[in-house]
Simulated scan of single mutants.
Amino acid sequence: MRSSDSDRVYLARVDHLRAAAAVLVVLYHGCQLLGARIEGRALTDAAQRQHSTNPAATLVLEGHTAVALFMVLSGFIFTVGAHGRPIRYGRFVTNRLLRVYPLYLVIAVLGLATQVALPSFEHLLAVLTFTTPGQPYGGVFWTLSVELQFYLLFPLLNRLLGERGPGALLRLLGAIALLRLLVWLSSPAPEPHTSALYLGLAGRIDQFLLGMLAAWCYLRHRERLRAGWLPPAALALALGALWGFHQLRGFMSDSPLKLVWSTLEGAVWAVFVAVYVAGARDRGGAVSRAAARLGEVSYSVYLTHFMVLTVLCEDARLVGALPSLPPVWAAFALSALVALPVTVGLSFLTYHAVELPFLRLRRPYLGSSPTGAGNATPPAARGEPGAVVRS
């Protein structure tokens, strides 16, 4: 395969995964928010959270797993892109800020505008740190804070992987797991909560590290990972793990098993990412191109969908439009047929109007390879100008 064809396949497959994760986030939040609105209950009432023994329904009802997929992808993409080449730390961090901050600031400032009082200095400071109080569109802002913390660590972690090999990251994973257990055991609460760990870098660093390890395997064993049966098997493994997690009450549970769930969740998605990206040649059909275009605007989808869902939840006529369906099915139908198309349409606008102008300001952050090792990496994966506008 020519280098340009290899680049196209790599980018398309990465964007397919981004698109799938973005769609899953919209459906998950749509089912939760619209479902609660239809049933007239509080979203925080764990006892009434939607539950199912159907594996297909589990994927949507535990659709927060898309966050794990995004985080695994972050570790994977940056590790592939930086393979064999030094990272210029300042440029790398600047590029990440240009990627994350512009659209986030637009959404966060618009959220502040929904409040009656003028924003204080504390509110503006909270915007800069992704902790805006009472933010109506901020349901996913916490993930951006976690991502930025990983960005600050990635050049060091990548050097560790390059100089010491995957064993260094595996040992780091083990140490983090042990420290996380000690934090949980030292809690003074009779029933220690696991949410703080699950929603912060302390509970999510596993997923970035596993994405980096998946990239290491992909770069060295691409040919072995191209067997056609591997992606379906890896997806079945991920769905099976998610189904088991859901039967234990999933995200709302404070079971000690959640201490290891982040690692398990990251591991199954890391396997899937590696085998899917390395899989059979992409033929570039209409479905593949459409999925890739959606993946290109996935960040906009991720940040704007709460705005759309907030509006839909306030429309009593729309919420009551499907009275013959069970609440969970009505919420799913509204999410898939209304919220998702509106969000995607809005996202193409915000991508080209807000994101793209700042993405074009980024500069290459990779130095030259002293050994030529980077030549084994597809140019589109290296962060060269215009090559990975999506990362």
Rank of each mutant, 00 (worst) to 15 (best):
L124Q: 06
V67I: 00
V328S: 04
G111L: 07
D254T: 12
L98D: 02
G228K: 10
R99V: 04
D15L: 14
L103R: 02
V23S: 07
V311E: 03
F358Y: 14
H352K: 12
L322G: 01
S120I: 08
E384V: 09
P341G: 09
M252H: 15
A380T: 09
A270Y: 08
S195V: 12
W261V: 02
Y101W: 15
G203W: 07
L128W: 11
R41F: 02
A316Q: 13
P232V: 03
G63M: 04
P166S: 05
M212F: 12
L264F: 01
F358G: 08
E147S: 09
P364G: 03
A68N: 06
F76D: 08
A380H: 09
L144E: 01
G374W: 00
H246W: 00
A22K: 01
A280G: 12
L148I: 07
A82R: 03
A19T: 03
A234S: 07
E122A: 15
H246T: 09
P102C: 11
T143L: 05
H29Q: 04
H64E: 12
T310I: 02
G228D: 13
P192S: 03
W243P: 05
V287I: 09
M252F: 15
I87D: 12
T377D: 00
S186E: 05
Y104M: 05
G90M: 05
Y299C: 04
T44L: 12
L264A: 13
G284S: 08
D315L: 14
L110H: 03
G279P: 06
L34A: 02
P378L: 06
S324F: 11
R37P: 06
I176V: 14
I176W: 15
A82S: 15
S145K: 14
A373P: 00
A233C: 03
F332S: 04
L17R: 04
L235E: 10
T377N: 01
S253I: 08
Y198H: 13
N95T: 04
T131P: 03
